[in-house]
Design a protein around this nucleic acid. Structure first.
Length: 604
RNA sequence: GCCCUCGUAGCUCAGUGGUAGAGCACUUCUUUGGUAAAGAAGAGGUCACGAGUUCAAUUCUCGUCGGGGGCUCCA
């Protein structure tokens, strides 16, 4: 299990200061104590509380399985009941702390078990307090139990108060989050104040799984995967395609109104294009394998659209009067994501970006950036997504993957922050989350299971124009370098549709629904009337359910398909020129005249 | 890619060291019905794939492929 659903709020106290937070922290210690008793010689590393529980990373000689968690839970219960007091102990100095780690924390299981704790000690800055928490007691049989851990705290006063917990899953996690380090075993658990809260959490988790876009995508006939087609390569079914086209039509219209021009570029290109852009250096192993022709020319399945749009810009000698040039394309790209990174259509190997690149003068940058932010916010509002956060991704100064000079990076970052400030937008700055060619503003939303996904992104880029030596002729008659803005309000069609599916539990708003209206003739003799109705309302996406099934069954199935409006037609309707209206949300609304139906549909 | 976990009919899922079952869906027949599942019959599976252990494997072991939860990563 991971960070899921919503953080538990305890009145107005921030989670980090809540009793629940301490409870989970203590539960992590209790689990570590149980593990040291069951698996002597285990090396402990870190064990913090997280959004919906806690984990502990341990280094075991023998791999453990999920079925072993029961035994650990049982041991935890025993140790909790001992009512071990949990007390804080401050080391005198660094030497003293080292002694405590080597002598006490190892619990007599050998100094090698202190490997990670010693590294953690080294990471504590000079002058900071070095604190330990210990717990212990002798049980009725006379066995001594003891545990001490380097830890900032806080904790509950006694293990007796850790009652309602559950170990959830096992995962691998690299020591200090670095792939080059050893992979440790991470055990996830959760803990609550009451049994009811724990049960409720598990229930909510089950319910959330039903909202999973992969399940709904199958139920609603939106998309599929096939083992024969390959991993991470979705196939769009008719209804999913309709939904997708509805979204692209909407965005195309918005973009047209805002001065964008559509372009179309190929799905493969010479590797030279990506050598020039710098993508090959950074991403070679994350692209699909290269193709080679008889003359040893190498081609690449396109992992992104920017270099193509750059070529289009560079195709003519540009005047400042033409700028800004806004080139838009729903461009399908292919990235060879690691198998473990795939997640339905939220993360696929082939996906379509609602991409555009703006080529602007320095004077236009801020206004254009703000224009793009506005477009993105308008789009998200139209889609009904409001619960997102903004993140400014900046460069990690210690990482070498970034291209371009310091001055360009500084300018680009200032442009983004200025635009955000002038729009009064709240954002977090996240170091190391920039694209390799420039900083970016990302909009992030959570899925059904509480995992965060990047949707829209806006990037300011001084570097690719430099690499491709892009120019326009300024008012002064001299060549100048344009600045690029990369942007995608949806991010990708696939991810956006996945997120929308979970957001709405598949019950899409009327305007987006693949099937907006299902007309249900009661008997065969009513089909003709249904077809006439469909013709009269051809501006809507209508299906006629003319199967020879009972009315109840057809209603049930269209309801499960989350069709927003059903129109039931029978003898009475033909006679009176009416339809029986049934809404997805409100159920049966009774018969209304065809004229009122027009009004009704406009109000949905 | 790594750690854990799963893979039985189109779908959702039971089940077993002696080659398989339910509900829904599908086909046919009866039923033409007014707001969340009409009735009956039929058909449908190399139990993901490959190898090993065994007299015997869908069941146990290993490998491959695919899915899921994490880690890393996401231009």
């Amino acid at each position: 299990m991971s960070q899921a659903i919503a953080p538990e709020k305890n009145g107005s106290v921030p989670y980090e200061q809540s009793r629940l937070y301490s409870l989970r922290h203590s539960a992590a210690h209790l689990m570590a104590q149980a593990i040291t008793e069951l698996y002597p010689g285990v090396k402990l590393s870190i064990g913090p509380p997280i959004e919906n529980g806690f984990y502990y990373d341990v280094d075991l000689d023998e791999p453990i399985k999920e079925s072993d968690l029961t035994a650990i839970e049982k041991k935890m219960k025993e140790l909790a009941k001992l009512d071990q007091a949990i007390t804080c102990k401050k080391a005198q100095d660094r030497e003293d702390a080292k002694r405590i780690i080597l002598e006490d924390c190892t619990l007599g299981q050998g100094e090698h078990t202190a490997e990670y704790k010693l590294q953690l000690l080294d990471a504590i800055p000079d002058g900071d307090d070095i604190i330990f928490y210990e717990q212990g007691r002798t049980d009725r049989a006379g066995n001594k139990h003891y545990f001490i851990d380097l830890c900032r705290g806080p904790h509950l006063p006694t293990t007796k108060e850790i009652k309602y917990f559950k170990l959830m899953s096992i995962a691998g996690a690299y020591w200090r989050g670095n792939v080059n380090n050893k992979q440790l075993t991470r055990i996830y658990g959760t803990a609550f104040e009451t049994q009811e809260e724990l049960d409720n959490y598990l229930y909510v988790l089950e319910e959330a799984k039903k909202r999973d876009h992969r399940i709904l995508g199958k139920q609603l006939g939106l998309f599929m995967f096939s083992q024969r087609v390959g991993s991470g390569l979705p196939l769009w079914l008719p209804k999913g395609t309709t939904l997708r086209e509805t979204l692209t039509d909407y965005l195309k219209k918005e973009q047209l109104e805002r001065g964008y021009q559509g372009v179309i570029t190929p799905n493969i290109a010479s590797s030279k294009l990506y050598e020039k852009s710098g993508h090959i250096i950074t991403y070679k192993d994350k692209m699909f394998p290269f193709m080679e022709d008889e003359d040893n020319n190498t081609f690449i399945l396109k992992p992104m659209n920017c270099p193509f749009h750059i070529e289009i810009f560079a195709n003519a000698l540009r005047s400042y009067k033409e700028l800004p040039i806004r080139l838009a394309e729903f461009g399908t790209v292919y990235r060879f994501e690691q198998s473990g990174e795939l997640a339905g259509i939220l993360r696929a190997r082939g996906f379509t970006q609602d991409d555009a690149h703006l080529f602007v003068t320095p004077e236009q940058l801020e206004e254009e950036f703000i224009g793009v932010v506005k477009l993105t916010m308008d789009v998200l509002k139209k889609l009904g997504l409001t619960n997102y956060r903004a993140r400014v991704g900046t460069r990690d100064p210690n990482d070498t993957k970034y291209v371009g000079g310091d001055e360009n990076w500084k300018l680009a970052q200032e442009a983004i922050e200025n635009a955000c400030k002038s729009m009064d937008m709240d954002y977090d700055v996240s170091e190391g989350d920039a694209a390799f060619y420039g900083p970016k503003l990302d909009l992030i939303i959570k899925d059904a299971l509480g995992r965060e996904w990047q949707m829209g992104t806006i990037q300011v880029d001084y570097n690719l124009p430099e690499r491709f030596e892009l120019e326009y002729i300024g008012e002064d008659g001299n060549p100048h370098r344009p600045i690029m803005i990369h942007r995608a309000p949806f991010g990708s069609l696939e991810r956006m549709i996945g997120l929308l599916t979970e957001h709405y539990s598949g019950a899409f708003p009327f305007w987006m629904s693949p099937v907006q209206i299902a007309i249900i003739p009661i008997a065969d003799r009513h089909i003709e009337y249904a077809e006439k109705l469909k013709k009269d309302f051809k501006e809507y996406r209508i299906s006629i359910d003319s199967r020879r099934e009972t009315l109840g069954k057809k209603i049930r199935e269209n309801q499960i398909q989350k069709v927003p409006v059903m129109l039931i037609v029978g003898d009475k309707d033909i006679e009176n020129n009416t339809v029986g209206v049934r809404s997805r949300e409100d159920g049966d609304k009774g018969a209304i005249s065809i004229d009122s139906l027009k009004e009704f549909l406009e109000s949905v």
